[in-house]
């Protein structure tokens, strides 16, 4: 599937956050040190690494939310939508208006979002509840809604942050199926996870990040295998 045009290219990217202790005492936390990879159109790229490896920071970089301190990210005009557990919904507003607002914030035209509104609501399976304020939703419900927005609006690149474990089994299976379908129809996905299984299952390529540095990039099966071996050797991993 790969080998097509490069959508996003990440070159030696580093990000450090300033953590303020007090007025004159500050130090830096390096979330990413040196990460590089190319992302091609139609690819499904899994970013794998342990907690604190800098995966979420990487997604924020790819989504254009923050800029890197060193290195560069070259985005060839691809629209991105970030999906994560904490969806940026306004709890006081209804699900319906939140869908329109978040679609527009993702950069989509208002008419386009409204045309797709019914599809989005149908996919989320929220039904009548859609007109109630989001604060009355459960975590699973709002994650489902956020997931539906990003899936149905078809951004060039879907950025997914550990969201696959959300919702009941049925919804999880449905979204996995839809994502596989999207992959076949050329949707590009970047998925972040510390679960090797998810990456192996859904991605054709993978990048392994350890301590803010790219360890390996390539075919997902190979990368996942190397990652699992490393985790076993260190004796720190879950599996």
């Amino acid at each position: 599937m790969s080998g097509k045009d490069i959508l996003i290219s990440v070159r030696n990217v580093g990000v450090r956050f300033m953590s303020r202790r007090s007025l004159f005492n500050r130090d830096y936390v390096e979330a990413l040190k040196d990460v590089s990879f190319d992302f091609h159109h139609g690819d499904s790229l899994g970013v794998i690494g342990r907690n604190g490896a800098g995966k979420t920071t990487l997604l924020r970089l790819l989504g254009g939310i923050i800029h890197p301190d060193t290195g560069e990210i070259i985005n060839n005009d691809a629209s991105t939508a970030l999906l994560s557990l904490q969806v940026g919904f306004d709890p006081e507003l209804s699900g319906r208006i939140n869908v329109v607002l978040s679609g527009m914030m993702l950069g989509f035209d208002r008419n386009y979002v409204e045309e797709n509104l019914d599809k989005i609501i149908a996919f989320s399976e929220l039904g009548e509840v859609i007109d109630r304020p989001v604060k009355s939703y459960s975590t699973g419900m709002s994650a489902r809604l956020g997931f539906s927005v990003a899936l149905e609006l078809n951004p060039d690149v879907l950025l997914i942050d550990e969201v696959m474990g959300v919702g009941d089994v049925e919804f999880r299976e449905k979204s996995t199926a839809v994502m596989k379908e999207k992959l076949l129809s050329d949707q590009s996905i970047i998925l972040v996870s510390h679960s090797a299984g998810t990456v192996k299952n859904l991605c054709n390529r993978a990048v392994w990040i350890e301590d803010g540095v790219t360890q390996m990039e390539g075919d997902s099966a190979e990368v996942v295998e190397a990652y699992e071996r490393y985790i076993c050797d260190n004796g720190k991993g879950k599996k």
Partner: peptide, 11 residues
């Protein structure tokens, strides 16, 4: 106050 939103999309 809109930190959740800011982490989600660039506006």
């Amino acid at each position: 106050q809109n930190k959740g939103l800011m982490m989600q999309v660039h506006i």
